[in-house]
């Protein structure tokens, strides 16, 4: 399957799929779709990428964040240091060579974290109402509206949790399987 054209095409399409999956997630409340289907679509994009390029490549491209770090120079305040740190990481492609990079380490977004986050969001969206002395999962609809979403109520939060969790799970399974 590893033809260059296919793998490149899939690599390019994957972000597109992600956008699509988020769209599916968001429209779910009113049209076919929802967190589950959205999550599946998003995950399947990565799965195809894994099939085409191998899981290391997928993990490296989409789930790893390289971070450059520099010890604080004397005479610079903390605020300045962190600003510099952020700027350094944003502009890293251009300036990586110029800065005296001391350390470089990778933050891996492991699927387990996605799972935990998803489950946490889903649960917390229900718990909010418990804290308001209402039954678990009583939907809370805030007054304000966001252009695409409409009112972002807790059911949408719940759906987001489902989305993240499903994505995390499928990725976890597929990556583990691919590692075998």
């Amino acid at each position: 399957m590893k033809t260059i054209i296919l793998s490149t095409a899939i690599r390019l399409l994957t972000p597109l799929f992600q956008v699509f999956s988020i769209y599916i997630l968001l429209r779910g409340h009113n049209h076919p779709g929802g967190g589950f289907i959205g999550g599946l679509i998003g995950a399947i994009a990565f799965v195809f990428d894994t099939l085409a390029n191998g899981h290391e490549s997928t993990e490296k491209t989409f789930f790893t964040l390289k971070v450059y770090q520099q010890p604080r120079k004397s005479g610079i305040s903390y605020l300045q240091h962190y600003l510099q740190f952020i700027r350094m990481n944003i502009q890293r492609k251009k300036e990586a060579g110029q800065l005296d990079v001391q350390q470089q380490y990778c933050i891996q977004l492991r699927p387990v974290y996605l799972m935990a986050l998803g489950l946490f969001i889903a649960t917390i969206s229900g718990t909010i109402s418990l804290l308001l002395q209402q039954p678990f999962m009583t939907s809370q609809w805030p007054e304000f509206h966001i252009p695409v979403l409409g009112s972002p109520g807790t059911p949408l939060l719940f759906d987001l949790g489902v989305y993240l969790l499903v994505m995390g799970i499928i990725l976890k399974i597929v990556f583990t399987l691919a590692k075998e």
């Binding site: 387990v112 799972m115 935990a116 489950l119 649960t123 718990t127 418990l130 678990f136």
Partner: peptide, 20 residues
């Protein structure tokens, strides 16, 4: 509401906390 659901939610939160 809380009382009935606590036996359900506590292990769930525990498990979520374990995952990281």
């Amino acid at each position: 509401h809380l009382l009935v659901l606590l036996p359900l939610l506590l292990p769930l939160y525990g498990a979520i906390l374990c995952l990281p």
